[in-house]
Design a binder for these strands. Structure first.
Lengths: 157, 157
DNA sequence: TTTGTTGCAAAACGTTTGCAGCCTC
DNA sequence: GAGGCTGCAAACGTTTTGCAACAAA
Protein backbone atom coordinates (compact mmCIF):
# COMPACT_ATOMS: atom_id res chain seq x y z
CA UNK A 1 0.00 0.00 0.00
CA UNK A 2 2.55 2.55 1.18
CA UNK A 3 4.85 1.42 -1.54
CA UNK A 4 2.35 1.94 -4.31
CA UNK A 5 1.34 5.33 -2.99
CA UNK A 6 4.96 6.39 -2.81
CA UNK A 7 5.50 5.14 -6.34
CA UNK A 8 2.50 7.17 -7.47
CA UNK A 9 3.81 10.37 -5.94
CA UNK A 10 7.24 9.79 -7.37
CA UNK A 11 5.74 9.18 -10.76
CA UNK A 12 3.85 12.48 -10.57
CA UNK A 13 7.05 14.34 -9.81
CA UNK A 14 8.71 12.57 -12.72
CA UNK A 15 5.98 13.30 -15.23
CA UNK A 16 5.91 16.91 -14.08
CA UNK A 17 9.59 17.07 -14.90
CA UNK A 18 9.07 15.43 -18.28
CA UNK A 19 6.25 17.82 -19.11
CA UNK A 20 8.32 20.75 -17.91
CA UNK A 21 11.22 19.76 -20.16
CA UNK A 22 8.88 19.20 -23.08
CA UNK A 23 7.30 22.64 -22.72
CA UNK A 24 10.72 24.27 -22.39
CA UNK A 25 12.33 22.62 -25.41
CA UNK A 26 9.29 23.26 -27.58
CA UNK A 27 8.92 26.82 -26.39
CA UNK A 28 5.47 26.38 -25.03
CA UNK A 29 4.41 28.43 -22.03
CA UNK A 30 4.23 26.96 -18.56
CA UNK A 31 0.73 27.94 -17.57
CA UNK A 32 -0.88 26.91 -14.26
CA UNK A 33 -3.77 25.34 -16.21
CA UNK A 34 -1.44 22.86 -17.89
CA UNK A 35 0.08 21.67 -14.64
CA UNK A 36 -3.31 21.49 -12.97
CA UNK A 37 -4.59 19.23 -15.75
CA UNK A 38 -1.51 17.02 -15.56
CA UNK A 39 -1.94 16.72 -11.81
CA UNK A 40 -5.61 15.85 -12.09
CA UNK A 41 -4.76 13.11 -14.56
CA UNK A 42 -1.85 11.63 -12.65
CA UNK A 43 -3.45 11.65 -9.23
CA UNK A 44 -6.54 9.78 -10.37
CA UNK A 45 -7.09 6.23 -11.46
CA UNK A 46 -8.10 4.71 -14.72
CA UNK A 47 -9.39 5.81 -18.08
CA UNK A 48 -10.91 9.22 -18.63
CA UNK A 49 -12.32 11.39 -21.36
CA UNK A 50 -12.27 15.14 -21.91
CA UNK A 51 -15.65 15.79 -20.36
CA UNK A 52 -14.96 13.67 -17.28
CA UNK A 53 -11.72 15.54 -16.76
CA UNK A 54 -13.48 18.86 -17.26
CA UNK A 55 -16.18 18.05 -14.72
CA UNK A 56 -13.72 16.68 -12.19
CA UNK A 57 -11.64 19.83 -12.37
CA UNK A 58 -14.45 22.35 -11.87
CA UNK A 59 -14.36 21.77 -8.10
CA UNK A 60 -10.85 23.04 -7.51
CA UNK A 61 -9.91 24.83 -10.67
CA UNK A 62 -11.72 26.65 -13.44
CA UNK A 63 -10.55 25.46 -16.86
CA UNK A 64 -12.33 25.55 -20.18
CA UNK A 65 -12.88 22.52 -22.37
CA UNK A 66 -10.79 24.19 -25.07
CA UNK A 67 -7.82 24.27 -22.72
CA UNK A 68 -8.42 20.68 -21.73
CA UNK A 69 -8.23 19.59 -25.36
CA UNK A 70 -5.22 21.78 -25.98
CA UNK A 71 -3.37 20.27 -23.03
CA UNK A 72 -4.37 16.71 -23.90
CA UNK A 73 -2.75 17.25 -27.30
CA UNK A 74 0.46 18.38 -25.66
CA UNK A 75 0.44 15.40 -23.31
CA UNK A 76 -0.12 13.09 -26.25
CA UNK A 77 2.83 14.59 -28.05
CA UNK A 78 5.19 14.06 -25.16
CA UNK A 79 3.70 10.58 -24.68
CA UNK A 80 2.52 11.06 -21.12
CA UNK A 81 -0.91 9.84 -22.14
CA UNK A 82 -2.34 7.69 -24.92
CA UNK A 83 -5.64 8.08 -26.71
CA UNK A 84 -8.12 5.34 -27.49
CA UNK A 85 -11.07 5.53 -29.84
CA UNK A 86 -13.20 2.65 -28.76
CA UNK A 87 -16.48 1.83 -30.47
CA UNK A 88 -18.42 4.84 -29.19
CA UNK A 89 -17.54 8.35 -30.27
CA UNK A 90 -15.91 10.02 -27.32
CA UNK A 91 -12.17 9.49 -27.13
CA UNK A 92 -10.74 7.85 -24.03
CA UNK A 93 -7.33 8.62 -22.61
CA UNK A 94 -5.05 6.93 -20.13
CA UNK A 95 -1.76 7.74 -18.52
CA UNK A 96 1.33 5.91 -19.66
CA UNK A 97 3.88 6.61 -16.98
CA UNK A 98 4.06 4.26 -14.00
CA UNK A 99 1.39 2.08 -15.57
CA UNK A 100 1.91 -1.40 -16.87
CA UNK A 101 1.31 -1.98 -20.53
CA UNK A 102 -2.02 -3.67 -20.93
CA UNK A 103 -4.49 -4.61 -23.59
CA UNK A 104 -8.21 -4.10 -23.83
CA UNK A 105 -11.17 -6.42 -24.00
CA UNK A 106 -14.20 -4.70 -25.50
CA UNK A 107 -17.67 -6.15 -25.26
CA UNK A 108 -19.48 -5.58 -28.54
CA UNK A 109 -22.81 -6.00 -26.77
CA UNK A 110 -22.64 -3.63 -23.81
CA UNK A 111 -19.48 -1.68 -24.64
CA UNK A 112 -17.78 -2.49 -21.35
CA UNK A 113 -13.99 -2.31 -21.41
CA UNK A 114 -11.71 -4.51 -19.34
CA UNK A 115 -7.95 -4.52 -19.18
CA UNK A 116 -5.66 -7.50 -19.27
CA UNK A 117 -1.97 -8.28 -19.62
CA UNK A 118 -0.23 -11.12 -21.37
CA UNK A 119 3.50 -11.43 -21.49
CA UNK A 120 3.55 -13.66 -24.57
CA UNK A 121 1.60 -11.18 -26.63
CA UNK A 122 3.71 -8.33 -25.31
CA UNK A 123 6.91 -10.19 -26.20
CA UNK A 124 5.71 -11.07 -29.69
CA UNK A 125 4.87 -7.47 -30.48
CA UNK A 126 8.02 -6.03 -29.01
CA UNK A 127 10.15 -8.57 -30.85
CA UNK A 128 8.87 -7.25 -34.15
CA UNK A 129 11.18 -4.87 -35.93
CA UNK A 130 10.34 -2.77 -38.94
CA UNK A 131 12.90 -1.57 -41.42
CA UNK A 132 10.97 1.50 -42.40
CA UNK A 133 8.98 2.30 -39.31
CA UNK A 134 10.01 3.47 -35.87
CA UNK A 135 7.59 1.99 -33.35
CA UNK A 136 6.66 4.14 -30.37
CA UNK A 137 3.67 2.43 -28.79
CA UNK A 138 0.78 0.17 -29.64
CA UNK A 139 -2.83 -0.70 -28.81
CA UNK A 140 -4.42 -4.11 -28.90
CA UNK A 141 -8.21 -4.27 -28.78
CA UNK A 142 -9.89 -7.63 -28.48
CA UNK A 143 -13.59 -7.61 -29.32
CA UNK A 144 -16.08 -10.17 -28.13
CA UNK A 145 -18.83 -10.80 -25.65
CA UNK A 146 -18.35 -10.43 -21.90
CA UNK A 147 -19.59 -13.00 -19.39
CA UNK A 148 -22.55 -10.88 -18.33
CA UNK A 149 -23.85 -10.48 -21.88
CA UNK A 150 -23.13 -14.13 -22.61
CA UNK A 151 -25.43 -15.15 -19.77
CA UNK A 152 -28.16 -12.83 -20.98
CA UNK A 153 -27.88 -14.24 -24.47
CA UNK A 154 -28.20 -17.84 -23.28
CA UNK A 155 -31.28 -16.97 -21.29
CA UNK A 156 -33.17 -15.46 -24.22
CA UNK A 157 -32.29 -18.13 -26.77
CA UNK B 1 -3.68 -12.80 -61.56
CA UNK B 2 -6.58 -14.87 -62.91
CA UNK B 3 -6.57 -16.90 -59.77
CA UNK B 4 -6.89 -13.88 -57.49
CA UNK B 5 -9.66 -12.41 -59.61
CA UNK B 6 -11.52 -15.67 -59.52
CA UNK B 7 -11.07 -15.85 -55.77
CA UNK B 8 -12.44 -12.34 -55.46
CA UNK B 9 -15.55 -13.17 -57.44
CA UNK B 10 -16.10 -16.33 -55.47
CA UNK B 11 -15.74 -14.43 -52.27
CA UNK B 12 -18.35 -11.91 -53.39
CA UNK B 13 -20.80 -14.69 -54.11
CA UNK B 14 -20.07 -16.15 -50.70
CA UNK B 15 -20.50 -12.91 -48.78
CA UNK B 16 -23.71 -12.23 -50.69
CA UNK B 17 -24.95 -15.56 -49.45
CA UNK B 18 -23.88 -14.81 -45.88
CA UNK B 19 -25.56 -11.42 -45.98
CA UNK B 20 -28.64 -12.94 -47.50
CA UNK B 21 -28.88 -15.51 -44.71
CA UNK B 22 -28.26 -12.87 -42.08
CA UNK B 23 -31.05 -10.66 -43.42
CA UNK B 24 -33.41 -13.61 -43.62
CA UNK B 25 -32.83 -14.95 -40.12
CA UNK B 26 -33.03 -11.50 -38.57
CA UNK B 27 -36.11 -10.54 -40.55
CA UNK B 28 -34.54 -7.60 -42.26
CA UNK B 29 -35.63 -6.69 -45.78
CA UNK B 30 -33.57 -7.49 -48.81
CA UNK B 31 -33.41 -4.12 -50.47
CA UNK B 32 -31.41 -3.42 -53.64
CA UNK B 33 -29.50 -0.66 -51.80
CA UNK B 34 -28.08 -3.14 -49.31
CA UNK B 35 -26.78 -5.47 -51.99
CA UNK B 36 -25.41 -2.58 -54.02
CA UNK B 37 -23.43 -1.36 -51.02
CA UNK B 38 -22.11 -4.85 -50.29
CA UNK B 39 -21.05 -5.21 -53.91
CA UNK B 40 -19.30 -1.86 -53.95
CA UNK B 41 -17.36 -2.83 -50.84
CA UNK B 42 -16.41 -6.31 -51.96
CA UNK B 43 -15.39 -5.43 -55.51
CA UNK B 44 -12.99 -2.68 -54.40
CA UNK B 45 -9.67 -2.78 -52.66
CA UNK B 46 -8.57 -1.56 -49.29
CA UNK B 47 -9.90 0.57 -46.46
CA UNK B 48 -12.81 2.91 -46.89
CA UNK B 49 -14.98 5.25 -44.92
CA UNK B 50 -18.65 6.16 -45.20
CA UNK B 51 -18.09 9.27 -47.30
CA UNK B 52 -15.71 7.55 -49.71
CA UNK B 53 -18.23 4.78 -50.19
CA UNK B 54 -21.00 7.32 -50.69
CA UNK B 55 -19.05 9.25 -53.31
CA UNK B 56 -17.94 6.10 -55.12
CA UNK B 57 -21.52 4.89 -55.37
CA UNK B 58 -23.04 8.07 -56.78
CA UNK B 59 -21.85 7.16 -60.28
CA UNK B 60 -23.86 3.97 -60.66
CA UNK B 61 -26.38 4.08 -57.90
CA UNK B 62 -28.14 6.72 -55.87
CA UNK B 63 -27.94 5.98 -52.14
CA UNK B 64 -28.15 8.31 -49.19
CA UNK B 65 -25.54 8.53 -46.46
CA UNK B 66 -28.17 7.42 -43.95
CA UNK B 67 -28.62 4.16 -45.84
CA UNK B 68 -24.86 3.73 -46.08
CA UNK B 69 -24.55 3.97 -42.31
CA UNK B 70 -27.53 1.73 -41.78
CA UNK B 71 -26.05 -0.95 -44.04
CA UNK B 72 -22.57 -0.64 -42.56
CA UNK B 73 -24.11 -1.41 -39.17
CA UNK B 74 -25.74 -4.53 -40.56
CA UNK B 75 -22.49 -5.64 -42.17
CA UNK B 76 -20.66 -5.08 -38.90
CA UNK B 77 -23.19 -7.21 -37.09
CA UNK B 78 -22.79 -10.14 -39.44
CA UNK B 79 -19.01 -9.60 -39.33
CA UNK B 80 -18.53 -9.05 -43.05
CA UNK B 81 -16.64 -5.85 -42.27
CA UNK B 82 -14.72 -4.45 -39.30
CA UNK B 83 -14.55 -0.88 -38.11
CA UNK B 84 -11.42 1.01 -37.12
CA UNK B 85 -11.24 4.29 -35.29
CA UNK B 86 -7.74 5.47 -36.03
CA UNK B 87 -6.41 8.77 -34.67
CA UNK B 88 -8.57 11.07 -36.79
CA UNK B 89 -12.30 11.21 -36.30
CA UNK B 90 -13.80 9.48 -39.30
CA UNK B 91 -14.26 5.75 -38.89
CA UNK B 92 -12.53 3.45 -41.35
CA UNK B 93 -13.90 0.11 -42.42
CA UNK B 94 -12.46 -2.94 -44.14
CA UNK B 95 -13.80 -6.18 -45.44
CA UNK B 96 -13.07 -9.34 -43.51
CA UNK B 97 -13.94 -12.13 -45.89
CA UNK B 98 -11.23 -13.41 -48.23
CA UNK B 99 -8.73 -11.08 -46.59
CA UNK B 100 -5.81 -12.17 -44.48
CA UNK B 101 -5.73 -11.01 -40.90
CA UNK B 102 -3.32 -8.14 -40.66
CA UNK B 103 -2.26 -5.42 -38.28
CA UNK B 104 -1.82 -1.71 -38.76
CA UNK B 105 1.10 0.64 -38.62
CA UNK B 106 -0.03 4.21 -38.03
CA UNK B 107 2.28 7.16 -38.53
CA UNK B 108 1.65 9.70 -35.78
CA UNK B 109 3.18 12.40 -37.95
CA UNK B 110 1.35 12.14 -41.27
CA UNK B 111 -1.43 9.72 -40.34
CA UNK B 112 -0.56 7.23 -43.07
CA UNK B 113 -1.68 3.68 -42.42
CA UNK B 114 0.16 0.61 -43.59
CA UNK B 115 -0.74 -3.01 -43.11
CA UNK B 116 1.51 -5.84 -42.04
CA UNK B 117 1.26 -9.45 -40.96
CA UNK B 118 3.23 -11.37 -38.38
CA UNK B 119 2.53 -14.97 -37.59
CA UNK B 120 4.16 -14.85 -34.15
CA UNK B 121 1.95 -12.01 -33.01
CA UNK B 122 -1.09 -13.68 -34.53
CA UNK B 123 -0.27 -16.94 -32.77
CA UNK B 124 0.30 -15.25 -29.41
CA UNK B 125 -3.06 -13.50 -29.55
CA UNK B 126 -5.00 -16.51 -30.74
CA UNK B 127 -3.40 -18.70 -28.07
CA UNK B 128 -4.88 -16.49 -25.39
CA UNK B 129 -8.04 -17.78 -23.80
CA UNK B 130 -10.32 -15.92 -21.49
CA UNK B 131 -12.51 -17.60 -18.94
CA UNK B 132 -15.11 -14.89 -18.94
CA UNK B 133 -14.88 -13.44 -22.41
CA UNK B 134 -15.70 -14.90 -25.81
CA UNK B 135 -13.26 -13.42 -28.32
CA UNK B 136 -14.59 -12.69 -31.80
CA UNK B 137 -11.90 -10.55 -33.44
CA UNK B 138 -9.15 -8.11 -32.61
CA UNK B 139 -7.27 -5.04 -33.81
CA UNK B 140 -3.62 -4.26 -33.28
CA UNK B 141 -2.49 -0.70 -33.97
CA UNK B 142 1.20 0.10 -33.83
CA UNK B 143 1.96 3.81 -33.64
CA UNK B 144 5.24 5.37 -34.66
CA UNK B 145 6.95 7.32 -37.40
CA UNK B 146 7.07 6.17 -41.02
CA UNK B 147 10.22 6.28 -43.10
CA UNK B 148 9.13 9.34 -45.05
CA UNK B 149 8.50 11.41 -41.92
CA UNK B 150 11.69 10.07 -40.33
CA UNK B 151 13.69 11.45 -43.25
CA UNK B 152 11.97 14.82 -43.02
CA UNK B 153 12.68 14.97 -39.31
CA UNK B 154 16.38 14.22 -39.79
CA UNK B 155 16.67 16.94 -42.38
CA UNK B 156 15.24 19.68 -40.18
CA UNK B 157 17.13 18.76 -37.02
C1' DT C 1 6.46 44.56 -24.80
C1' DT C 2 5.49 40.61 -27.38
C1' DT C 3 2.81 36.90 -28.52
C1' DG C 4 1.32 32.27 -26.89
C1' DT C 5 -2.61 30.87 -24.18
C1' DT C 6 -6.96 31.45 -22.10
C1' DG C 7 -12.30 31.38 -21.77
C1' DC C 8 -16.22 31.83 -24.21
C1' DA C 9 -19.30 31.06 -27.86
C1' DA C 10 -19.97 29.81 -32.35
C1' DA C 11 -18.69 26.62 -35.99
C1' DA C 12 -17.25 22.31 -37.77
C1' DC C 13 -17.38 17.59 -38.37
C1' DG C 14 -19.02 12.82 -38.82
C1' DT C 15 -22.95 10.44 -37.53
C1' DT C 16 -27.85 9.86 -36.04
C1' DT C 17 -32.64 10.86 -36.11
C1' DG C 18 -37.50 12.33 -37.55
C1' DC C 19 -40.53 12.16 -41.03
C1' DA C 20 -43.25 11.39 -45.25
C1' DG C 21 -43.33 8.39 -49.00
C1' DC C 22 -41.88 3.98 -51.01
C1' DC C 23 -41.43 -0.93 -51.69
C1' DT C 24 -40.48 -5.66 -49.42
C1' DC C 25 -42.86 -9.13 -47.61
C1' DG D 1 -52.01 -3.92 -46.83
C1' DA D 2 -48.63 -3.45 -43.00
C1' DG D 3 -44.62 -1.69 -41.58
C1' DG D 4 -39.53 -1.79 -42.44
C1' DC D 5 -36.55 1.01 -45.31
C1' DT D 6 -35.46 4.95 -48.02
C1' DG D 7 -33.88 9.92 -49.01
C1' DC D 8 -33.75 14.27 -47.25
C1' DA D 9 -32.81 17.66 -43.99
C1' DA D 10 -32.44 18.96 -39.52
C1' DA D 11 -30.39 17.63 -35.01
C1' DC D 12 -26.85 15.69 -32.26
C1' DG D 13 -22.49 15.47 -29.45
C1' DT D 14 -17.68 15.89 -29.49
C1' DT D 15 -14.00 18.52 -30.90
C1' DT D 16 -12.09 22.69 -33.14
C1' DT D 17 -11.84 27.48 -34.13
C1' DG D 18 -12.14 32.75 -33.95
C1' DC D 19 -11.64 36.40 -31.09
C1' DA D 20 -10.70 39.65 -27.39
C1' DA D 21 -8.53 39.70 -22.97
C1' DC D 22 -4.79 38.01 -20.26
C1' DA D 23 -0.31 36.72 -18.64
C1' DA D 24 4.30 34.18 -19.36
C1' DA D 25 8.61 35.23 -21.23
Amino acid sequence: MDESKEKEENSFETVKQIFNDYLATHQHRKTPERYAILEQIYTHEGHFNAELLYNAMQKDYRVSLATIYNTLDLLLECKLIVKHQFGDQLAQYEKTFGTNIHHHLICTQCGKIKEFSDKNIKAAIQAKHFQTFQMSHYSLYIYGICSKCLKKKKKTS
